[in-house]
Design a protein around this nucleic acid. Sequence first.
DNA 1: CTTTCCTGTCTTGTATGCAAGATAGCCAGA
DNA 2: TCTGGCTATCTTGCATACAAGACAGGAAAG
Lengths: 253, 253
Amino acid sequence: MQDSQTSETTQKTIEETIVSGILSAKIRPGTRLSENQLATLFGVSRTRVREAMMRLETRGIVHVSPRRGWFVVEPSAEEAIAVYEARRVIEAGLLRSMRVLTDEGRKALDAHLNEEKTAMAAGDRQRLTYLMGDFHIRIAELSGNAIIVDILRDLTARTILISMLYQSEFHAAQSHDGHCRIFEAMQAGDFVRAAELSVDHLDEVEMGLDLTTRPDPLSELRSSLSLPPKTVPSVSQLSDPKNHNIKGAIKTC
Amino acid sequence: MQDSQTSETTQKTIEETIVSGILSAKIRPGTRLSENQLATLFGVSRTRVREAMMRLETRGIVHVSPRRGWFVVEPSAEEAIAVYEARRVIEAGLLRSMRVLTDEGRKALDAHLNEEKTAMAAGDRQRLTYLMGDFHIRIAELSGNAIIVDILRDLTARTILISMLYQSEFHAAQSHDGHCRIFEAMQAGDFVRAAELSVDHLDEVEMGLDLTTRPDPLSELRSSLSLPPKTVPSVSQLSDPKNHNIKGAIKTC
DNA sequence: CTTTCCTGTCTTGTATGCAAGATAGCCAGA
DNA sequence: TCTGGCTATCTTGCATACAAGACAGGAAAG
């Protein structure tokens, strides 16, 4: 039995609900999050909704436009690049630091990859989006380091928002293949290789984005008026995503 | 001219003030942060103080004990280990991903290391603590990736809290030496070596901690009653800090 | 038809008030 | 002296009230 009223729920539910909504691609970037609506929806006052929004803001998930409203972030092309770069840095660093893959870990990843395969067969795109992001979180969980898990979860949420904005087609098979390769390297105990594969995988996904289409509708106008671009974290000195050979081949593992 | 009233200041000042107070070791772990006191201090109402506290809480800087108060976090030994592990992962991953050290970058780091030397000569411990942490943030800034900079800034703040809790002596010369080595490797364009040195450096600092003394005063009682330890992110599968040869030699560079 | 301005409505920003738990200190009783 | 309990006070938790900016829509002027 399920109340239509979601009250009685504990403190962090608003935050978690929104994040998991994003992780499963049920909430689109730019979605308006009205304090009043959320308040009535969750059966609390605006105060608590605001607290959740503030937390989500520091996590880079939502932003507020003063006296206009809260919105799920719409990462710019520059921010998208920075997110992928951060993920490459952290995930590769994490894999390189690993020494063993425990049997539990192996089982967990194996089960996860099977879920991916099942969802692919079923064509369940939302679930697939969730699983594709969750794979990386699972790897972080193997490390047992809660700090890194939290960081990667938030970055994954942003990644999903990015793909909803800039990803024309969803290359699920390709991603699944990348995950399998990483898993294989881990099973072989070759974590350096796993790290490299992880970088390649993120490069592939990033290169599957069309970062020229959507950035902001004003970009052309903005540049023709020679106004400064929005907020540009320069990434010049970091490694660019390599021109990796993208093999479209579907390989089940 | 300086108002005793710090009102009129902009939104994020409370948050930033506290963080920079921690980064410069002026605020100790466990410090009580009363909403009322901060409110009068900053000339605002409790509402805005609370917002700042919530943000700091999601950043891992403060925590709230329900209806007792807000406190600057006192990381447990396990959390301390997790923080250092996260820093090793991220900083090594970052250095490995770098390709060039620009001339500005070289100058910035060089200037920083000179500041460290000056502060060491002056014996200004608070400033030294700040600079020792800031070095790592400077490196992150070189990457131009704002996401990584923010993450490392918060981790550095936590690191400083950890050293205030667990560090008996302050091996400034040793840290400075480590920074110099990293800088030299970067200048030589050997970022892989820089990453390794960074890991070694963090290992050194971590091993300079006495993680058995302070954890919580109840740990003995707790274990003798066989209660579960507080909140333990297991780090078993991650590389342990290596038994690196700690050379106490002071080397100016 | 276009432009400008005005006003009503909706949004967040901020302060404040009250509820309720936690704590310290005191007092009484053994 | 020690123990138990009561109360005054301080803390955060949460809701609400009001302020003030943003915006849409319509009316009036050109």
